[in-house]
């Protein structure tokens, strides 16, 4: 399932399993697909119970900011 929301790693257990938190829901996720391994506090993207990428919060916010700026710019210049 293409879950859009990043999940936060709250604990790393044995066997490449981590506990991740998505908006208050905690569950196990496999870290087998990540190399280097993430650490507690990192945000990851999840797919069918596997972390598939590490994200940074700043990246997400930065991305939004750029988008907003782009829109402002275009509105100002009336295209």
């Amino acid at each position: 399932m293409c879950l859009a929301i990043p999940s936060k790693i709250v604990e790393i257990l044995d066997n490449n399993i981590a506990i991740v938190d998505t908006m208050g829901v905690r569950r196990k996720a496999s870290l087998e697909l990540l190399n280097p391994k993430p650490k507690v506090g990192d945000y990851v993207l999840l797919h069918v119970g596997f972390a598939i990428e590490v994200l940074s919060e700043e990246d997400a916010l930065e991305s939004l900011k750029l988008f907003e700026e782009a829109l402002d710019y275009e509105n100002e210049f009336e295209l």
Binding site: L33, L34, N35, L45, I52, A60, E62
Partner: peptide, 13 residues
């Protein structure tokens, strides 16, 4: 979708 996607992708996967 630069916050998640790179040119090379997830090499481990």
């Amino acid at each position: 979708y630069t916050r998640a996607v790179t040119e090379e992708g997830n090499k481990e996967a």
